[in-house]
Design a protein around this nucleic acid. Sequence first.
RNA 1: GGGCAGGUGGCGGAGUGGACAAUCGCAGCAGACUGUAAAUCUGCCGUCCGUUGGGACUACGUAGGUUCGAAUCCUACCCUGCCCA
Length: 380
Amino acid sequence: MQIFKVFHKDPHSQARTGVLSFKDFQITTPIFLPVGTLGVVKTLSYQDLKEIKVEAFIANTYHLYFRPGEEILKKFGGLKNFINWDKIIFTDSGGFQVYSLRELKKISEEGVEFKSHIDGSLHFFTPEKVIELQSVIGSDVAVCLDECVEYPVEYNYAKRAVEITTLWAKRSKKRFEELKKSNLNVTHQKLFGVIQGSVYKDLRKQSIEEILNLSFDGYAIGGLAVGEPRSLMWEVVEFISENLPEDLVRYIMGIGEIEDIFFCIEKGYDIMDCVLPTRNGRNGQALTSFGKLNIKNSKYSKDENPLDLECNCFVCKNYSRALLHHYYKSQELLVLRLMSYHNVYFMINLFKKIQEKINTDRFLEFKKEFLKKFSNSENE
RNA sequence: GGGCAGGUGGCGGAGUGGACAAUCGCAGCAGACUGUAAAUCUGCCGUCCGUUGGGACUACGUAGGUUCGAAUCCUACCCUGCCCA
């Protein structure tokens, strides 16, 4: 059963809108997933997410394994029950932690040995284990454990990572199907395979063939935006897109700069996620129609305007830049939430607009117009 | 009036003869952040010049002195805190 259906294709680019169907919930694409590593989009409450109309976010298996841990998650009947979330949750496998916590890990065909970033204790993840954990978490979309490599990386190492990723994908799928038969909790769960290959096109091609062969519910593209120059990343993004069948749902992982988002959507990607709106928000950066704005800058200390003059979010309706600046400088915790709230709203809203524009065949115009204003960055 | 302690860059506070324009923290100013070990990290922070290496000037309460050389030693004075009368 296909979970994805293309709704409308833009005649001028590869952009498309689509519908992703879950057990009792549908989401329309392109969609942006805020990151909620530990089962919370940092600083935002359920009510906030509801107001912003967030329909899905991505949590992290590696992190949830350490805290709160399997036992608690089981006791509460999965993450969705635990956090009282009635919409969609994706879970990342821990593949990104293979990259980001590389000093703490040892990798072999069998799996990854991690030193816990919390207490240094040793833990071993196999692809099967990661599937089991995701079944305990009970996410709607699980992702296979993969090896995400850094940039730059030697060809041979990247090739080995592709091979390991494929091997793990096979084992993940097998375990996933076993569990589905025996565990009523996860009958609703979908599984995405991950395509690796760094910036080497032949490796990307190899990975695409191998992973598609295993037939997953959707396909995630990993290993991008890990430090490579943007032009190179775009080249790879485009190449991958050209080599993927059109009817399958494509999830490009970790993409979140506005320019990258437009590019990926134009090339036919449907799902993306990024820490940027929340992390950068907490670090003082607001996304606005007129570019990025750093609320810490002294020039905002007397500014009566909202963060974004064109934004209708709760924060922009009620808080001046000067007040947010004051809160930030005074380390008032509320500002972390307000900034995150605005940024997530900005992203969700942007994707909604993009959907509209694709459906009315005006995506490229919109992109041009939006980016022109965004990169002028006069903030006024 | 006497005794003791002390006066260092916006603030706190090191340094107690050369490696001192002066550790460090705070404040200030800017930058970074792309499947979150991030309310984090990096840079600048006496003045002027230089993109960098660097150069010039002014500075450790005030005024003198000792010394090749002083924030550091000596003398006097001013100020602050504590204790005694």
